[in-house]
């Protein structure tokens, strides 16, 4: 059973997640088909910057986050930004998009100059997230849980972060049981994706340098 307090927490997180989206004019540019390699690089960079700004705005709404130590706030955001971005991008590939949009996006990423060795695990991740068919609530909570991971580098007060993450994990676990009664492993599968995300994060800086070189 989800308590009233948990309902309120969930609503807050989902509302914040939906309210803070990448501006439409930035997103629309991605679907224009004519582009050079240089334009593509600039556009994906602009998109990434916008995603980070949106992520910070979302995170400010997570109850208790702004009360954390300021440097811990930065450490958490810095180490989770890539993972949160992959999670949000995955949504684009798992949602039903207007005909042709997913293909344009996929082609743009494949032609961006990022090496194939990084592209393949990225699309594998998008596929595995797509298979889960997460609801908006699950997506938003999983993002909050990713950001509030206590064992990130340079985080000083692990306990304070854990205190914020635990209620989110609890709500998500209950939600999974309620929404997927036929799949007792669903919650574990969601958490498994977080491990996959960490691997993507690990290779991300390597991926960026190869991209810049190209």
């Amino acid at each position: 059973e989800i308590t009233k307090e948990q309902q309120a927490l969930m609503k807050l997180i989902v509302d914040a997640y939906n309210r803070h989206q990448i501006p439409q004019d930035v997103a629309k540019k991605l679907l224009q088909e004519q582009y050079s390699a240089e334009e593509n690089f600039l556009l994906l960079t602009e998109m990434a910057t916008s995603q980070v700004q949106v992520l910070v705005e979302f995170t400010k709404n997570i109850p208790g986050f702004l009360a954390l130590d300021h440097e811990d706030q930065i450490a958490l955001l810095k180490s989770s930004a890539v993972e949160a971005m992959f999670l949000r991008s995955a949504q684009v590939f798992s949602k039903k998009m207007p005909s042709g949009h997913t293909e344009v996006l996929e082609e743009r990423i494949r032609k961006s100059g990022i090496s194939e060795e990084f592209i393949t695990p990225m699309f594998n991740f998008y596929k595995s997230i797509g298979e889960l068919q997460m609801t908006q609530e699950e997506q938003a909570l999983l993002t909050a849980i990713t950001i509030l991971t206590p064992d990130r580098p340079y985080v000083k007060d692990h306990q304070a972060v854990e205190k914020l993450q635990e209620p989110m994990l609890d709500v998500l676990r209950k939600l999974c049981v309620l929404q997927h009664p036929q799949e007792p492993q669903y919650f574990a599968r969601l958490l498994g994706r977080l491990t996959e995300l960490r691997t993507l994060n690990h290779y991300h800086s390597e991926m960026l340098s190869s991209w810049r070189m190209n």
Binding site: L42, V52, I74, L77, K78
Partner: peptide, 21 residues
């Protein structure tokens, strides 16, 4: 432009709420 900033700079600016700067 923000695209010339590093990740930490973008985060710090966004946390302070002065995205326009």
């Amino acid at each position: 432009p923000a695209s010339n900033l590093g990740l930490e700079d973008i985060i710090r600016k966004a946390l302070m709420g002065n995205l326009e700067e």
